[in-house]
Nucleic acid binder design. Structure first.
Lengths: 330, 330
DNA sequence: TTGAAAGCGCTACCAC
DNA sequence: GTGGTAGCGCTTTCAA
């Protein structure tokens, strides 16, 4: 119920020391005598004192604020990533600030806004917006890490899933399960991740002596668009017996075309979204190693902040196969 | 590429005015002459200046930071809410800070952390954790708004969906569609929202002369638990011909029990999650009016901040029926 | 090890 | 309407 904010001055007075002493007590690795430290801690606890992070950052310290730029939250994968990032940051006593484009789809205003909060760094995971966001962060002088794609200009480091490996894992699983005529339905044709997945998938198939039967992209990686793409592809090539794809495509084939799994067709999902393990789905998927990605981002952030933007290297995180019964109960 | 941060001093110098003039230019409703304002704006633009929000908040201004306390992101409804809140805050030049419990499920440390950032207020939507969070925010002196439940102590205001109305809408829809033996599968037995929904549902049924056939709760409102509950209920009362429930229950009945819709059984979903409109589902649902809820929260925040915690009143936001083809294509 | 004092960038108050 | 100045809470020299 304390109405007034407790300042270091209050603590100092109660502890009978100077403000400097209080500050030192809360500065890791500063030089304070045991007795001083103890009385300060005691006074601080009694008063419920916490250093004002805003005031601290004004003295040249890091603010502890990290911007997370994301354009999409509809896809559960995105929100999972955001949650994981926030958790990881919290563990380092940092705080995430979500930055989203405004209604017109523009990211600039929002970035300007959080820029005013002196964020130490930015994590850019905004899909199609990421290039623009990267540019803006660079000109604002905010050290940044990209997620989910490379920086085509090679200016900043990135963290992403090893998509080729994801493709290979999917291919191996399908072939091991007896697939003979596999196909791929991917995301945006211009999406780096989708391209890499496809490449890994096809490479591995050929290595195993299986000829991939076809592939198609879906314009925006949405459920609907995957649904459509799958219908078209399967109408063109009805002999396809297995697919590496996302949920939309799978539902289309099972529901619209009435194909049964695994008798008629087999699937590996491209995203280990929570839905994949629901009783109705039980879909074998390639995991998106969200926590590991977040961890890798934290490590790069650390490097960037202490040694500079140039010292951080891009990183790939290995996904793995999550094997589940592929049959639907219906 | 500018490396040094631009301060109001820089702008003042370039514009040939004082720091005060710069400050006034960026203070809505301050008194500056047109000519001064213009030259300041020009200089600021040229330098890429934005007032430092952290420094500003040190002068007694509001920080513009708002904590959003949430315990769950797995449920797409939660992340939708967070996104909507962030967007709404951004529109008011405010920034959201997500606060989540740490790995041990404790919210205190996280709250302490963001408390150090002098948040102006907190939005508490943490389900089962919200009572604890509310308590902590109160003792830290952070004005708060609850989402999705009432404060049992009546200390702070809340914003929530009108759950009784949701229940009534569902009942009317089912009866209009010819339902005779409806049942309800809800969330946590202790959950206020679920209880209210049930009450509205049953009241409306009785008003229409239809006797509800049964109901059950599911312990944690998860997909799995709804799935189980539905199987049990339907085994006990196989004559049930319609349900107001969530996804898990619906999938269980269609897939596990093989009941067809709408011939064998009809559904109204309790959440208008994105999935509801997927081609595979096309489920009629009660909307969760997320944007309106966010808007209502903003309005309460405004009241709290300007007139004090006590002046804000709890608010109910009306949901509506989203009617879709209830048949699955399969 | 300690305290006094300067200063981070900003706004508010005060004379002009 | 305008500029000087004090001060927000903190960390960090610098003497002691």
């Amino acid at each position: 119920m304390q109405d007034k904010r407790i300042t270091s001055d209050d603590v100092a007075r109660l502890a009978g020391v100077s403000r400097s002493a209080v500050s030192r007590t809360f500065t890791p690795g500063a030089s304070v005598s045991e007795s001083t430290r103890n009385s300060v801690i005691a006074a601080a606890r009694k008063l419920g004192y916490r250093p004002n992070a805003l005031a601290r950052s004004l003295t040249g310290q890091q603010s502890g604020l990290v911007a997370v730029v994301m354009a999409e939250f509809a896809n559960p994968y995105e929100s999972q990533v955001f949650y994981a990032l926030t958790q990881a940051l919290q563990k380092l006593d940092k705080v995430s600030m979500l930055v989203t484009p405004d209604e017109s789809g523009d990211i600039n205003n929002s970035l300007q806004l959080v820029g005013a909060y002196q964020v130490d760094s930015a994590i850019i995971a905004a899909g199609s917006l990421s290039l623009q966001a990267t540019q803006i962060c660079l000109t604002m002088g905010i050290p940044s890490v990209l997620m989910g794609r490379d920086d085509p200009f090679g200016k900043i480091c990135s963290v992403q899933t090893d998509n080729r490996m994801a493709g290979r894992l999917a291919a191996e699983h399908l072939v091991n399960s007896g697939a003979q005529r596999p196909a791929y339905i991917g995301g945006r044709p211009d999406g780096q991740a989708s391209q890499e997945r496809k490449q890994g998938f096809f490479d591995s198939l050929r290595d195993q002596g299986v000829e991939p039967l076809g592939h198609c992209d879906n314009p925006d990686y949405s459920y609907q668009s995957g649904y459509q793409s799958a219908l078209e592809l399967l109408q063109r090539r009805p002999e396809i017996d297995s697919l590496f794809c996302a949920f939309g495509a799978m539902d289309a084939i099972r529901q619209q075309l009435g194909r049964k799994t695994p008798q008629d067709i087999q699937f590996v999902g491209a995203d280990n979204v929570p839905m994949a393990e629901w009783p109705g789905y039980q879909l074998t998927t390639i995991s998106q190693p969200v926590e590991l990605l977040a961890q890798a981002v934290m490590e790069n952030l650390e490097i960037i902040l202490t040694q500079g933007q140039a010292m951080a290297r891009s990183r790939r995180v290995a996904p793995w196969l999550v094997s589940r019964a592929t049959t639907r109960n219906a």
